[in-house]
Nucleic acid binder design. Structure first.
Lengths: 348, 348
DNA sequence: TAAAGGCGTGGTAACGTTCCCACGAAATCA
DNA sequence: TGATTTCGTGGGAACGTTACCACGCCTTTA
């Protein structure tokens, strides 16, 4: 039933040229007469020729395939990254093989093997492995993405600019009159936490705020983690309005629930600032003001860097993508209604 | 720097057998002595051999690649579908090429071409094209997913069971004492709307409810669409508690905002039931009770069907996947506090 | 005018695997 | 014991493309 698919030889025969000439015409090489090229292109259209990428990859070594290994395509942030990578790849006529590793070492290893066997031209990887061995042995051009990539300074990588994110978050808090925000941070084991905290401290010092006196709670990067952290925060002795900078949107949303359960209102009694930019933040009540990571841009930029790696001009540096503030309704504006607070006014 | 990758010939040489025997041993064929197989496998490990999928595809016609064309990987539902497809594909040693069509006809066409050129073994497609021509000419095994696939009854397809979804939604509404819910539906042009409405009517008739008297509003499948529809619904004259069955979670979330803006409370004054199961529904206040589509299962099942198509035993039927109720807090329980309402009590 | 160079073209090899066929040895049957 | 089948093995072709080389024609240069 299914007829054999036309090859370049069929096209050449129909055009009355050799397959060499047909190949040159179809691949857009220069050393073909316009007349021959046109005959070949017409013949290709006539027989319905479509290039066989496998054969091309076989012979030339370039498959037109890129790999993407992320923790979970279901996570909105990683979906954005995937979308950006996919769009930029398509712009350059390449296709994307997508894998989810679930933060699992052995799954990651098997995905990397699949990418090698598929002979992809390169891969974009959010590494879950603690050691660099798997990546060292990967044997293909690659670019790392995400904050865990910071552990591998030898590789080219793209991530969000946490320093800048903390700065615009702090700027916004201060502009709304919150001079001494509490913090809800992720687990101590995560590398992003240290960077977040360090930058936060720097900005406190710049503003003559003593970071040591600010309330701080840890939790998992989940709704439940943020919920529990906020409960602990509210249990502390304090006076006046409480402002919280959460290191993750899900935690911020969990914190919001805890505020409501405590009989308090957001933003009237408690202001909350998130970090990530997940879509769910737009549907909470109030909407979550947050510092959004540029997931899509990270994906696009990673592909650009990967093309550099493939072309053999590796940058081998980390690219930091700027974050931006999304203002919704979870921050009260204290700057309008009352005199500027002193640095210590908000603490318990 | 990069050494040539070992081929099956290197393995054969090291094992002291022909490449035919090496190939048989590596592909798990039966007609090889255990001794030869072991020697080949040892040699493969020793030289670090990894099969070249391109060459396999070239010769055997099977590439181990599957295609997935969905509207937008950034949409949580489609991300779930992609994840399910990806997991089931990986279980069978296959990789997934993912494309987003953005509901655009020409993008879809170009993605389908890319899949053909990559010689994928088959594809899972949510068709955006109004006509069947592109798919007819696709030339590879495929399975359709999503409700728009219903327009192509000749093809194998997988979707959610809207009839069953409406039934469990209605059962839940009735069990909570809401005997005459209002409806917020999608645009009249969408095929899913007609199916939803038809099933809804059937269930009303079964319960001796006259569907013609129930309030009904249309809108786009967006937060804004639901918001506007709810405003129109609230503007109608009515008495007592209002229950709303929205055909889409985003619309339900928009409706929830409209309720709040009208100075009413959910679920005390207005009960809302959604349909989709988007993650954001877990973070709204109150949490959105909804009928969740089994995105992941749809993806997995679509891969199963695709394997059937590839194997040449096409089912050419539509598979309906059951939905399930996720109970959060957006429905009031009227059955406990007041006598059972009559069918007409909730309408305006 | 002859030599040298550029350009378009065609033939052939190569990429790495699987499929097909043929061969010899061992096992089975008459 | 001789004929037949089964089994493991090896050799070669094939998949469709691009890379490479050689050839002949035309133009340019000494």
């Amino acid at each position: 039933m299914q007829r054999r698919r036309p090859t370049i030889i069929d096209v050449a025969r129909k055009a009355g040229v050799s397959k060499s000439t047909a190949g040159r015409a179809l691949s857009g090489a220069s050393n073909v007469t316009d007349e021959a090229r046109e005959r070949v292109l017409d013949a290709a259209r006539a027989v319905g020729y479509e290039r066989n990428d496998l054969a091309v990859g076989m012979r030339s070594g370039r498959t037109g395939l890129l790999g993407l290994v992320i923790p979970d395509i279901t996570n909105p942030f990683w979906a954005e990254v995937a979308r950006g990578a996919q769009d930029r790849a398509a712009e350059n006529g390449m296709s994307l093989l997508v894998f989810s590793s679930d933060w699992d070492h052995s799954r990651e290893a098997s995905h990397l093997r699949a990418l090698r066997q598929a002979r992809v031209d390169g891969a974009i990887i959010n590494p879950v492995a603690d050691n660099f061995d798997d990546l060292d042995r990967f044997g293909l051009p690659f670019v790392l993405i995400g904050s865990s990539a910071e552990r591998f300074p030898a590789a080219s990588s793209v991530g969000s600019d946490i320093a800048q994110a903390v700065r615009i978050g702090m700027d916004h808090l201060v502009s709304k009159g919150h001079h001494a925000p509490a913090l809800i941070l992720g687990p101590k084991s995560r590398i992003a936490r240290a960077r977040f905290l360090r930058t936060f401290h720097e900005h406190c010092v710049e503003r003559d705020i003593d970071p040591a006196v600010l309330p701080m709670e840890d939790g998992e990067y989940t709704v439940e983690g943020g919920h529990a952290a906020m409960k602990r925060l509210l249990a502390r002795e304090r006076t006046g309005h409480l402002a919280v900078f959460a290191a993750n949107d899900l935690m911020a949303l969990g914190a919001m629930v805890a505020v409501r359960e405590a009989g308090l209102r957001c933003p009237e009694d408690v202001s909350i600032l998130g970090f990530d930019g997940v879509p769910a933040g737009a549907f909470s009540w109030p909407g979550l003001t947050t510092v959004a990571k540029p997931g899509r841009e990270i994906g696009m930029r990673a592909v650009d860097c990967l093309f550099d790696e493939i072309a053999g001009r590796p940058e081998h540096g980390r690219v930091f993508m700027p974050c931006r503030l999304i203002e919704r309704g979870s921050l009260a504006d204290l700057s309008l209604h009352q005199p500027k607070l002193t640095a210590g006014a908000g603490r318990g």
